[in-house]
Design a protein around this nucleic acid. Sequence first.
DNA 1: GTCTATAAACCGATAGAC
DNA 2: GTCTATCGGTTTATAGAC
Lengths: 201, 201
Amino acid sequence: MVQVAEQPDTRTRIVASTCELYRRQGMAGTGLKQIAQAARAPFGSIYHFFPGGKGQLTEEVIRSWGLMYGDLVAQVFDSAPDLPTAIEWAFAGAAESLAVTDYVDGCPVATVALEVASTDETLRLATADVFTDWIDLGVKRFEYTGLPQAKLRELVIGFVTSLEGAFVLCRAMRSTEPLHAAGKVVLAAAHAALAEVAEED
Amino acid sequence: MVQVAEQPDTRTRIVASTCELYRRQGMAGTGLKQIAQAARAPFGSIYHFFPGGKGQLTEEVIRSWGLMYGDLVAQVFDSAPDLPTAIEWAFAGAAESLAVTDYVDGCPVATVALEVASTDETLRLATADVFTDWIDLGVKRFEYTGLPQAKLRELVIGFVTSLEGAFVLCRAMRSTEPLHAAGKVVLAAAHAALAEVAEED
DNA sequence: GTCTATAAACCGATAGAC
DNA sequence: GTCTATCGGTTTATAGAC
């Protein structure tokens, strides 16, 4: 069978387009009509695949992004020889990706999280689940370092918060400096924690 | 002259109410009618005081918040005996304020920044100016530490990004843990930087 | 300056033909 | 599954009375 310029199915295109639009302009700033147009899908298809409307579509965007980005970071982590290198690579990669995409390539979860944290409990829980999963994933990945559990968790949370906060400043200032600076700060904290463990031996 | 329960003038109430609503639900999620109602002002007064409409009102909210929050942080910094204590107090204060307000009391600049970074150049510049001012203010305040300029700037940017990112996670997870963890990470980085300078003596 | 009414466009959501 | 038409409500913005 010959396949010419195959494109993902309608449902997949809707989710992908929604995600992309949310990254640039947030949820409230994105209309369903705009989503349908971007996904090259008829308007009715949105309600066909997501009978729960915008809320259901948004929740799927949040959770699927959580899995995708979690996998991406896990790959970076797994290919890095140690914790400090993993931190360096993650921030450097984020900075490059942001610059290449003209500073639109932020995190859709953070944008939506700020919008819904006080207005939509279902979606707030979805964003919280994503952040919790990312933290657990990071902690599990670096347990081998021998850092005390509490210290490791603190460091991983600091990693995620720094990354998310740096995205905000980078996109606003159209500069990668905040990501580089945030990376250095997290790196310094990691080195300090590792040195403390090494001393005990 | 006797003054009974004096309330701020209409214009001030409009800006304050807009700021509060933006903190909870962002700019796109907030309607001008809702703002008028919250400010107990007639709808027409918004366009009377802000002929430029929502854009002009939003820019004033962003810039005035930048000044207010900059002053607040400057007060915390000035009352702290040294850099590490200033960092601890700032994160602890933010965490307390967030918990007390039921996780509503985030940063309006960050929310709006993510919404407009790729859609409204005028407002993007306003958010960038605020972040730049905060960074410059922090650098100037701690020049006395003797840290090299680049290292100090890196640390201050890490401070701001960690604070903003932690706000996102705290509001999503309804927990102050991210702010506490982020504070610890920035603190560790500050200690490491200061120790490096001390060694040179 | 204060307030109301309304225009014109857009929103999310639904119904129903095909 | 695809697509269109439309409903009721909301949005920003304006016009004009008081």
